[in-house]
């Protein structure tokens, strides 16, 4: 009898310890891992862009670099959102599966490419894995979302949001997103994350339109200058 009581209580303590460790893992350790993984992705991108600049593709020595298809699970751009702080920058990877979203923001496959006509849709974690979109509700109309693919700076301006919707509302990432207020085809950007902060019952959306583009050689765009 004593052995049974003791074993059961030991098991309870063990389970409790494992739960506490799991909370530490989710709240703290995923952030530590995400920070180093995202920095690594950004480093990789910058190194790749440097190489490409050193050896321009043949045939277009001065013209804009021909865009390659985005490879699944690989970074292709860096996003800056001044509203989240001047040091906030995150890699954007192709795909939105959990493994990709651990390493940065995820570009929905089959949505438009940067600067293209259509809708560039990007998803990111609100909480855990570095909390990239933690301040999502603070985004306001007119805020800049700056993205670079190594050759061009794309400055998008937010027109509407944060808009709360349900997870099945896939029309928010359509080329002309429903309920966004846009009526004509254009060059749009949609960001999505979860709502509420720790839940998954809803999604938060913001929409932006392409405001300006400039080659990287001309320096940082206006929105990123302090």
């Amino acid at each position: 009898m004593r052995v049974i009581v003791r074993t059961v209580s030991e098991l309870c303590i063990t389970v409790g310890t494992v739960i506490v460790l799991f909370v530490v893992y989710v709240l703290f350790w995923t952030g530590v891992r995400a920070d180093s993984v995202m920095d690594e992705q950004i480093e990789r991108l910058r190194a790749q862009w440097q190489r490409e600049r050193a050896q321009p593709l043949p045939g277009s020595p001065l013209g804009p670099r021909k865009q390659r298809p985005y490879a699944a699970g690989r970074p292709f751009a860096i996003m800056y959102i001044p509203r989240f702080g001047f040091t906030w920058n995150k890699p954007v990877l192709e795909g939105t599966d959990p493994d990709t979203l651990r390493k940065g923001l995820g570009h929905y496959p089959h949505t438009a490419r940067l600067g293209e006509r259509g809708n560039v849709a990007v998803a990111g974690h609100r909480r855990t894995h570095g909390d990239p979109f933690k301040d999502f509700p603070r985004l306001r109309c007119g805020d800049a979302v700056v993205v670079t693919d190594g050759a061009t700076w794309f400055t998008y301006r937010i027109d509407k949001g944060p808009y709360k919707t349900v997870p099945t509302d896939i029309e928010v990432i359509d080329p002309v997103p429903r309920t966004s207020g846009y009526t004509r085809p254009g060059r749009y950007l949609t960001l999505t994350t979860c709502e509420p902060e720790w839940g998954h019952s809803h999604r938060l959306i913001v929409w932006a339109h392409l405001d300006s583009t400039q080659p990287v050689e001309t320096g940082k765009p206006e929105a990123l200058r302090r």
Binding site: V26, T96, P98, L101, G106, Y108, P109, A123, G124, H125, R126, R127, T128, H129, F133, T165, P167, T168, D169, I170, V172, I173, T192, T193, C194, W198, G199, H200, R203, I205
Partner: peptide, 11 residues
């Protein structure tokens, strides 16, 4: 856990 659901329609 639900923290991974950040996309619409889990695409």
């Amino acid at each position: 856990l639900p923290f991974n659901d950040v996309t619409v329609d889990n695409q």
